[in-house]
Design a protein around this nucleic acid. Structure first.
Length: 577
RNA sequence: GCACUCUUAGCUCAGCUGGAUAGAGCAUCUGUUUUCUAAACCGAGGGUCGGUGGUUCGAGUCCACCAGAGUGCACCA
């Protein structure tokens, strides 16, 4: 139940009727009309700009238009207590208290779907996120994007869309060869006591490779590890498999499960790259040419090469992009073109890619390709998550690839926990850099927004516990005939904003709105709770140790929204803390 | 040199397709525990929304230019 949409519909029906009767002109588009939350210092519940939108075509001031509308709106709605016009032409509506009875009844009847955006057309989404190279476990740097992608998926699923969460496995190319060589050397080290060539900068020195090597040895007794060339094919498969096992475990501790892992090697072996390039050639978007050196830089060692290029400049990119290396093998970009073609062929309405800030420069070329391959339908949305600045012991913590100098997901979660990590990483817009201070994230106080919100739920649970009710069970209340006080209505108004929060989060793919909303709601609840100290009527459990029905449904609706939101964020709502 | 993102209180940030007197938290100062969970709450101070123009009934939000910060910019993936 979205009361803003409800009243927007009512107003639009009204003005269309007036237009038909000949007493009101309408502009070409009614899209500018909205019903919104009034500023906090106004004593009203809804506010609309309809008069300001209509004033121009009717050649009347917004105030005059508003005054002709308010009596009509009020006379047709018995739940409105008062309606007024404010400069420069807003119409402000205040409901009778009975309205909030209806509201709360309505929400509790179908609380699982409260907030679901019923206007949104149901679509098929494919969201690709994480897609870290399968050369080892995930580290902190992967977390933000991983959580961002997961929660965007949760929001879309909450809104009843069809969502497939996908991980693109870059198991092809030089990095994988080097990774496999590293595993090979670790195996030789274990079996033949050969020293690992630690000085080779192409190899991966990490300790986890020893575990991978041991696992491979144990599970493949029949394999001989004499010459790299002889086992490279098989060892690549095994090494990637081990690596993916690690990654999946890491994702699982973050609470993330992908629906599909697509292998780059498979795309290449299926000749999908050749096929898609043929397709682009027919569209005259692929040619043999040279890339010019960028201006203004030191380009002394710039080598101009004739190579196969994709004409991404047709779509606004700064330069055309290489599809083939000088040895004629495919670039990463080429196989990614094929992968995106593969996605398109699977019939999704919207493709979403979650990228780290360091890959933002890649967006233009890949969206160009999708545009070209989908005949101009612009169905790829790229979401960039900005850097996370780690702060440990009050100082910035710089990660480097050198051994021991980086924090894995496992380290992170065992130190601060899954819930705190998810909540804090989401608490800011993905467009801004995020300070992740280990000490603060671990803190169990109101300085930590996760606990602040969880504590709100725990307080509600404690009330239920005191009167022997189960917060997880549906209430069986038929009579909704309550009189809510001003302070309670303030919270109910906040509850009524929940569908708006979901709508904005979903439309713009901005999950941070949810933790921000939950924090605000919790703040209002904690405030109300403390009023009970001075005013016994504000307490939930009365002196006969009973909780009245009005308080009960009131608590229920708050707890439902908090739980619903926390489910989307992917964190627990403990009943006791 | 180019591209993308950011610039809002001392610090970290919200601000919903342009809306009314710009909001939180931290920090600072101050009060609240015989009480449903003090992991909480009440109150105070703190602002030229980076700058300059423009668009209009109306700009923190849109446009142009300028300044600053971050990230990236060949065949790595």
């Amino acid at each position: 139940m979205n009361i803003f949409d409800l009243y927007l519909d009512k107003i639009i029906i009204l003005i269309k009727r007036l237009n038909k009767e000949g007493s009101l002109e309408l502009p070409e588009s009614l899209n500018g009309i909205n019903v919104d939350i009034p500023p906090p210092n106004f004593d009203c519940d809804l506010s609309t700009n309809v008069a300001m939108v209509l004033s121009k075509v009717n050649k009347k001031s917004p105030i005059v238009v508003a005054n002709t509308l308010i009596n009509l709106i009020k006379s047709e709605d018995e739940k409105i207590e008062s309606i007024s016009v404010a400069k420069p032409g807003f119409i402000n509506i205040k409901f009778k208290s009975i309205y909030w009875n209806n509201f709360i009844e309505n929400v509790n009847e179908n609380y699982k779907n409260f907030g679901v955006n019923i206007k949104e057309e149901k679509k098929k989404y494919l969201i690709e996120f994480v897609s870290a190279n399968p050369t080892g476990p995930l580290h902190v740097g992967h977390c933000r994007g991983a959580i961002l992608g997961d929660v965007i998926s949760n929001i879309l699923i909450f809104n009843k869309h069809d969502v497939s969460k996908e991980y693109y496995v870059n198991d092809y190319g030089n990095q994988i060869i080097n990774f496999t060589k590293s595993v090979f050397h670790r195996i030789r080290e274990i079996l033949n006591n050969e020293k690992f060539p630690i000085d080779n900068p192409d190899l991966y020195p990490g300790d986890y490779l020893v575990n991978i090597a041991n696992n491979i040895i144990d599970n493949n007794k029949n394999l001989k590890f004499d010459k790299f060339e002889d086992v490279s094919k098989e060892l690549t498969l095994l090494s990637v498999e081990e690596s993916l096992k690690l990654i999946k475990t890491n994702l699982a501790i973050l609470g993330i499960v992908h629906d599909k892992f697509t292998s780059e090697t498979e795309i290449v072996l299926n000749k999908e790259v050749e096929k898609v390039i043929q397709n682009l050639k027919e569209k005259k978007l692929v040619y043999e040419g040279k890339i010019k050196a960028p201006k203004g830089e030191d380009n002394d060692n710039w080598v101009e090469r004739e190579q196969l290029l994709f004409k991404s400049t047709n779509f606004g990119d700064d330069k055309d992009r290489a599809l083939q290396k000088s040895d004629k093998s495919w670039t990463y970009f080429a196989s990614d073109v094929a992968y995106h073609n593969n996605k398109l062929n699977r019939g999704y309405d919207v493709l979403i890619n979650i990228l780290g800030a360091d890959h933002a420069g890649y967006i233009k070329r890949i969206s160009s390709v999708v545009e070209a391959l989908s005949s101009g339908r612009n169905i790829l949305i790229c979401k960039v998550s900005q850097l996370v600045k780690l702060i440990k012991d009050g100082k910035p913590f710089k990660m480097s690839k050198r051994k021991g100098d980086y924090i894995t997901v496992e380290d992170l979660i065992s130190e601060v926990g899954k819930d705190a990590t998810r909540f804090i990483m989401l608490n800011r817009s993905s467009d801004v850099e995020l300070d992740f201070d280990f000490a603060k994230v671990k803190e169990k106080s109101k300085d930590n927004p996760l606990y602040y919100v969880q504590y709100c739920f725990a307080r509600i649970s404690s009330v239920f516990r005191h009167v022997d009710l189960d917060i997880n069970k549906d209430l069986n209340i038929r009579e909704y005939d309550f009189q809510y006080s001003k302070d309670e209505i303030k919270i109910l108004k906040k509850i009524s904003e929940w569908p708006k929060c979901i709508e904005a989060a979903s439309l713009r793919l901005e999950p941070h709105r949810i933790p921000v909303y939950l924090y605000e709601l919790s703040s209002e609840f904690h405030s109300y709770w403390n009023m009970g100290k001075d005013d016994l009527s504000k307490r939930f459990i009365n002196d006969q140790k009973i909780i009245p029905n009005d308080k009960l449904v009131f608590l229920k609706v708050i707890s439902n929204v908090i739980r619903s939101g926390m489910n989307i964020v992917g964190v627990d709502t403990p009943e006791k803390m």
